[in-house]
Computed example of a mutant assay.
Amino acid sequence: MPTPPERTALYRLYGTNDRLLYIGITDNPEARWERHAAFKWWWVQVTRKQVNWLNASWREALDIEKATIREERPAYNGTHNHGVAPFDAAAWPRIEAQPRQKFSALADLIRTEIASGRWQAGDRLPDAEDLATASGVGEGTVQRAFRELVNEGSIMRLHGLGTFVRARIVTIAPNRMLRPT
């Protein structure tokens, strides 16, 4: 007897004025919503739920969820709901520095991408594994470069979401008091 196809629901949660709050996948929407109600602070905003059943494997459903989040930009999805820094591993320079200077050379390459505007505030950086492979260094070297850039405020790491270009905060000195003329 053949195995029945997996049934996975792609669901959307809406708030007032049909504002899209969240997109997810599950094989049991009611149970998933109970978990959201227990753990998501924004659940009280949900006014409408929409479910579309997919005839797809779980892996295919994950890809559909990811594409839908990127396209529709729901308010409370963190994962997949951001721009990705442009990265061509084949064109990325290989680092030929001395072993103890490799992390610094990689940090300089990342700084250059940010300073040039190619990687912009809010963009997610390439995965450490991809950067390591493209640069010809180990993942530990990438992590050390990331730590340096985090410490200087160029990038930020968000647990479970990735590493992002940090927005620059410009501080403007307060105006001096001027005497009326």
Score class of each variant (00 low, 15 high):
96 E>H: 10
157 R>L: 13
124 R>Y: 00
2 P>Y: 03
65 E>S: 09
165 V>E: 02
152 E>I: 11
113 E>C: 06
112 T>F: 06
86 P>H: 09
164 F>G: 07
111 R>E: 03
12 R>C: 06
5 P>E: 13
179 R>G: 10
111 R>H: 02
43 W>D: 12
93 P>C: 05
66 K>V: 10
144 R>A: 14
37 A>W: 00
118 R>T: 08
22 Y>G: 00
92 W>Y: 07
32 R>M: 12
127 D>E: 10
52 N>S: 13
50 Q>M: 06
38 A>Q: 10
159 H>T: 14
163 T>N: 15
168 R>I: 04
87 F>E: 12
8 T>W: 06
101 Q>G: 10
101 Q>L: 14
36 H>R: 03
105 A>T: 11
63 D>E: 11
133 T>P: 00
123 D>R: 02
127 D>C: 01
55 N>F: 01
3 T>Y: 11
107 A>C: 09
43 W>H: 13
72 E>H: 00
145 A>H: 01
137 V>M: 02
73 R>N: 10
167 A>T: 02
79 T>A: 12
168 R>F: 04
29 P>Y: 03
73 R>E: 08
54 L>I: 11
63 D>W: 03
16 T>C: 04
112 T>E: 13
18 D>F: 03
5 P>V: 08
131 L>H: 04
98 Q>E: 14
68 T>L: 00
16 T>A: 13
135 S>K: 04
173 A>E: 15
100 R>N: 00
120 Q>S: 10
125 L>W: 02
7 R>N: 08
64 I>T: 15
161 L>W: 05
85 A>H: 14
122 G>C: 15
108 D>C: 06
86 P>D: 09
10 L>C: 08
174 P>A: 14
61 A>Q: 13
14 Y>L: 12
33 W>H: 11
